[in-house]
Nucleic acid binder design. Structure first.
Lengths: 376, 376
DNA sequence: GCTACTTCCTAATACGTATTAACGGCCTCA
DNA sequence: TGAGGCCGTTAATACGTATTAGGAAGTAGC
């Protein structure tokens, strides 16, 4: 019966009228401590009372319009967002960003990449991200032109992961793949391995390049020359079959494999299949270590030797960096590198002694060589 | 060298100046289709070009202050958000909301509940949610006063899960716990079970109440009177020890247990421990079924009989509902219930024949009362 | 009784957008 | 040539807040 009351929100003006003062006074009283002191006590009380009676709550939009800040931080992912089989990959990042964002008193704006592949940040010439005060970005397949354009506009952004841009400097928080990989090589060398196959991703992204750098550096540190034929790009992790492994251990004298995990679960699936039929056993026949975390989407039955990224911490750091970037008139870009942690696992072991005709250092145990192909 | 450019965000006025038109024209061009048609094509192009050059993006605050739409949907969780051990619980919701939101051409605003326990939606008299056009809400431990206040202000919200409010009607998308539980009871009865222990959560939330209703309804449908002593509240899932199970199977003649899973992994951990020492074996000694999904955070070694919530679908539906709510001047609240799916699993089996001295009716088997305490 | 100062409040303004009423110019038709 | 109509654009305004400059009383000092 009653016409829809269409309850308009109470504003400061409503309070002002009710308390018989001006809107400015209401604002002074309500916006807290310092300025509020200049108001006479009776007036203060009258305002507070009126506000309470009207159930006042401030309008965020107006507040942030006035203040210039939206108090929103963006999160943009250069992938179709949060696909199921990558949830373990993205979730920690999301968690870290989310957590730190809220700790800092901001809210989080999730931008979606539909996955059309085209320009998406700038759609129709308009920058969607600008809706937020700043933005954390993420993802493997970056569209660099867009990234560069953001930097050029000097919109505050921080990338999770190392990314290089031509002619523009980007803030990022990255894992130290170089050192982690190099250390992994050192560990294998310590166990007596000399011929280590490195299976890298085909795409030439920074994380992949860094791992390769680490591989080379690790070998160099051990005084082992790099055999370029042992650096292979693996298009599809499923190609990592028992035959493949046998080929390298047999023909090429490889005793250990370093492999860059895919973001989906194909690699671990392939590895499980490889060792399932018993033809190859890790680490008995060959040591294997992952250069990063496998997604644990399928229950992880095997504790692979690997190193692990401090994802949550990286994400938190990224948000902190971003907030630093906001405050002064756009502070200068910063790059932060955080160390990975080594996960011992059970997929590497001492190298089988294979070439009795070598001289050995005391640290590495050895047994007389067994014929590689016939050892079974 | 150059003085800090202090890149102010480009506004419509900037565009207007550059294109030699008025701010109003810019607004007409940029705010899209219908009104944009009234503008001459050359002007339109000039404006769009200027906008692109300046990297314009609309200021949400201003937009929403003006009363227009932000094209943002909010997601608010009444929990410290996305805790690690509940990721499998929340992730599907998040995914579904995220996906549908973007499909509808909105962006997603993630609001965080710090977990201080106090009022958080209205913090400092400010309703944070209002920056979005509407909001999907989620979580077990709801602060009802805040929820009611949102409805009262008639801000468009949809809850995922059934929630009842005094004197206010709330839109929600809920799983049909009543039917699912009732069906589970029916299944156990079909297998010959008559004394079914129901372990409910202590807190008296709607999902718990619905399960209890389902339990009673299921028994009623089978013509089995409810033994109130078989409805127990389990404060800590860890209490579900072998001794506990033995107590009920022994003393009280229980042959099956229905248990409401905790949102963390404590229940499945407890169950694993319980059957680990071999004293109790499911379903040989006792059938057990979960009234919902256990979080599969720890690799799930056991395929529990249970029913499962269509989380992603629920989330999608919630977003659709919300969008419907936005369009007419706040359409009327809607409640949607979606069915759960039965997961057979391997933790229930036929009831052991325990009291041979009974007469049986074909429809409802019954045993003469065995002394509950002494049956062992 | 005039100035100087204090105390408490308010008018005015800006923030960036969407919308509406109105306006100038041009065309058409009589 | 003047009236009427249409088209493209703009001036003006509102949204709700925070802030600043300044005003109206009142008090104190000479």
């Amino acid at each position: 019966m009653t016409p829809p009351p269409r309850q308009r929100r109470a504003t400061q003006l409503d309070i002002a009228r009710r308390a018989g003062v001006s809107q400015a006074t209401v604002s002074l009283v309500l916006s807290g401590g310092a300025a509020s002191a200049q108001i006479a006590e009776p007036t203060r009380q009258a305002v507070l009372e009126a506000a309470a009676e009207l159930g006042y709550s401030a309008n965020v939009a107006a507040k942030s319009l006035r203040g210039g800040r939206t108090h929103l931080l963006g999160l943009y992912t250069f992938e179709p967002v949060f696909p199921t089989d990558q949830r373990d990959f993205y979730y920690p990042f999301l968690m870290g960003v989310e957590e730190e964002t809220s700790r800092q008193g901001y809210d989080l704006l999730l931008f979606t990449s539909i996955g059309s592949g085209a320009r998406e940040i700038y759609t129709g010439g308009v920058n969607r991200l600008k809706l937020a005060d700043g933005c954390v970005l993420l993802g493997r397949n970056v569209r660099r032109e867009e990234l560069a354009e953001l930097v050029r506009e000097d919109f505050p952004i921080v990338f999770i992961g190392r990314r290089e841009l031509d002619g523009a400097e980007l803030s990022y928080v990255a894992a130290d793949y170089v050192t982690a990989t190099s250390d992994m090589v050192a560990e294998l060398v310590r166990l007596g391995h000399r011929r280590i196959l490195y299976l890298r991703a085909v795409e030439d992204t920074e994380p992949t390049r860094d791992r390769e750098t680490g591989y080379r550096r690790g070998l160099a540190a051990a005084g082992i020359p790099v055999d370029e034929s042992l650096i292979r790009a693996l298009a599809d992790p499923a190609d990592l079959t028992a035959e493949y492994v046998e080929h390298w251990t047999g023909t090429a004298g490889v005793t250990a494999i370093l492999v860059e995990p895919s973001e989906d679960n194909r690699l671990t699936t392939a590895l499980a299949a490889t060792s399932a039929d018993g033809r190859v056993s890790f680490p008995a026949d060959c040591s294997i270590a992952l250069l990063g975390d496998p997604p644990s989407w399928t229950p992880e039955l095997r504790n692979w030797t690997r190193f692990s990224l401090p994802r949550v911490e990286m994400a938190r750091t990224a948000v902190q960096l971003l907030i630093d970037l906001l405050d002064p008139p756009h502070g200068t870009p910063q790059q932060v590198t955080v160390p990975c942690s080594f996960v011992p696992g059970d997929s590497i072991g001492p190298a089988p002694d294979r070439a009795p005709s070598t001289d050995r250092t005391p640290s590495a145990d050895r047994t007389p060589s067994t014929d590689r192909r016939g050892s079974r």
